[in-house]
Nucleic acid binder design. Sequence first.
DNA 1: GTGGTCTAGACCACG
DNA 2: GTGGTCTAGACCACA
Lengths: 137, 137, 137, 137
Amino acid sequence: MLLGVNLTLDLDSEVPIYQQIRDRIVEAIARGEAEEGDPLPSTRQLAADFGINFHTVNKAYDLLRQEGVIRVNRKSGAVIRRDPRSGPPEPGFTDDWEDRMRVLLAEATVHGLGGDDVVRRCAAMLSGFRAEERTTR
Amino acid sequence: MLLGVNLTLDLDSEVPIYQQIRDRIVEAIARGEAEEGDPLPSTRQLAADFGINFHTVNKAYDLLRQEGVIRVNRKSGAVIRRDPRSGPPEPGFTDDWEDRMRVLLAEATVHGLGGDDVVRRCAAMLSGFRAEERTTR
Amino acid sequence: MLLGVNLTLDLDSEVPIYQQIRDRIVEAIARGEAEEGDPLPSTRQLAADFGINFHTVNKAYDLLRQEGVIRVNRKSGAVIRRDPRSGPPEPGFTDDWEDRMRVLLAEATVHGLGGDDVVRRCAAMLSGFRAEERTTR
Amino acid sequence: MLLGVNLTLDLDSEVPIYQQIRDRIVEAIARGEAEEGDPLPSTRQLAADFGINFHTVNKAYDLLRQEGVIRVNRKSGAVIRRDPRSGPPEPGFTDDWEDRMRVLLAEATVHGLGGDDVVRRCAAMLSGFRAEERTTR
DNA sequence: GTGGTCTAGACCACG
DNA sequence: GTGGTCTAGACCACA
């Protein structure tokens, strides 16, 4: 699967570019567009595709490597490391994740999104991941 | 309701302090600890309580004001503007919120948190908000 | 304690400069020259002292942060996080450490350093740490 | 003694492959699995066994040759040069070795491994070498 | 004044 | 051809 060509970045966003790259790749893996062992574009290639500096891509890949999402091999570049359904999360991840989720849920609540509505939207997005997964495979 | 005394900030976190203040206040409102019209602590008061610069608190309040969560009067200071169940979210909010939620959900999926587990945790946190709400009123 | 002025770097070494900075700081902490909460020089300051780029120092500090050795605070810069005697090592550290130690011990053995000699030298270096610790405090 | 079949390499490790080969061979010699004059597998043979480039193996052997661990004859290939107990280390080796050991010991100290614990682990690994040595001969 | 981000370009290590 | 290191300088976010 050719990852990288279908990423959409907003170079003017306040969200750092390297963070956007990381987010898009995590989403792509969740959607099942890339599975364990699949290669990512080379840092310089991806940088050229988006007209950004390769160091920026490098930082995104390094972040993904620290998170255990990809492996970086000197020869073949970066490849997907984790399969979406490869066991329970690392201890420590869930706590941090719940903290961030709590803020996001509180925000929805404060802005008038009902609890049922929120849960429905989350479930929809999650099954959206699985639906794409079935299609692209 | 005395908001502010029970805020917990981590001055060494990588999350900006003004963001933490904003997050804690949003959470408190979601939990129903403050309703429309309730006053927030003065910026100088809150800054003194935590030994931080009052400009930092100012920035947090300004962010909340931009988000439509509080109103700032010259005389009476900052007060809660919205009630958690006072109507549907502003147009534009939901799109942005879903973008951020999608990243968080993808992250959970990639790290091996099952969709059912995720939905269950979200629902639990949301009903946690409502439970506290009932108690504190 | 003024850390940084007494670091010695070899800019021509094959060992990356950022790695040398990291190593020297770890050694200084082991020797007790800096304890929990002590500040490190600012990245730009340390870079200027050695005539190197601040990005290089940045990378060293980032490495130390990932290892849990320092905290990086937006206001006050980097400070020592771990105290040399603050509890057992993280799980996973020891395995990796033993792998590296095994190679070093094998190397000594192959080059004719006797096991007793090796153990004696290690013990001497370790008590050297403690001795300095006692002196500088 | 058939060296090479029991080497375990991690092609995805951040440690260069040639370095891993060198490390494994040094460990094998320390364990007494090979003594002075014993042949190493041919570079092409070893490369084929692991599906790696034979230049990589070449680099590892060249490194070992520079370190004085093996001799390379045009005809008979690479053979072990030193016996683990064939005399004192070369001048210069010990200084360099102690520098690297100091870093490793400092790291253990900083991460909370006690000095006694460290010495005990080192002694255990060293006698592990000698135990295997006795068995395999 | 602190660290963080991004760009740009050079050189090296690895395989 | 791949990633890693280092340099250099600009601009921004945070407190």
